[in-house]
Every structure is written in C-alpha cells, then in structure tokens.
Nucleic acid binder design. Structure first.
Length: 106
DNA sequence: TGGGCGGCTACCG
DNA sequence: GCGGTAGCCGCCC
C-alpha cells in the first residue's frame, strides 16, 4: 500500500517472472521494461537477491543484457544459477550463456 | 537530509 | 571483445 508504483513494479516483475517458460531467459532491464518500468534493471537485481532460497520463481532465468550471469564465477550464487540453467538446457560458452539444443555443435 | 551501494545498461576508447 | 565511465533508482545506513 502506500508505496504505490514500486509495489506494483515488484508485483509485475514477479508475475512476469513466474510466466517465463522453461528454456527461456530474460535480461534484468528487459524484465523491468516488460513490467512497465524501464530503467529499473538494478531494482530487479535487488529483488532477485531478496528472494528466499525456497522460492519457486525461476530467478535463474534472469540474466544481464550481456547474456551472462551477473555473479563472479567463484560465488555460490553463480554456481546455483549455472546449475539450474544447465538443468533446463542452457550451457555456458566462454562465460556467455547459450541454449543447448545441439546448436552449439554445428 | 545526504551519501554510498548494488545479481544493471549504454557508450566510448 | 574488453575495461572504464556515466546514468539510473530504490534501499540502507
């Protein structure tokens, strides 16, 4: 209540996030834009960070505009996201994220 | 009230 | 393609 747009922004983000199908990913800024709040990319990141560990939201499908995981490689967050993504058919190619589906092997 | 900090982005060299 | 820089915006001291 009271807070207005931000609250709505959060709701929108969670809603959109919950509708992202498996095997698809989206950038922070893109997600924010879809929610109707362009420029809130960092805020999306903050939200993801705030998510509980037992959340069922596909937060791992949210990556940065460079198509990379926004964590340092040695962090647990990176490992967690990487593992979840690989389970859904994604694969890390040169620190970049790419969809598996055999197209990597030309 | 003020300043610094992020799971970001776009631009520039 | 990559590092540095400047905007962006809510959140937490």
């Amino acid at each position: 209540m009271t807070n207005q747009p931000i609250d709505r922004f959060k709701s929108q983000v969670f809603h959109i996030l919950s509708e992202i199908p498996k095997g698809e990913c989206i950038a922070y800024g893109e997600l924010a834009k879809l929610a109707g709040f362009p420029g809130y990319a960092r805020q999306v990141g903050s939200l993801m960070k705030n998510l509980p560990n037992d959340t069922k939201l596909p937060w791992h499908r949210v990556i940065n505009a460079q198509r990379r995981i926004s964590f340092a490689e040695n962090t647990d967050g990176y490992l967690r996201q990487k593992e979840k993504l690989e389970k859904e058919g994604w694969v890390i190619v040169g620190s970049k994220l790419a969809f598996n589906k055999n197209l990597i092997k030309k």
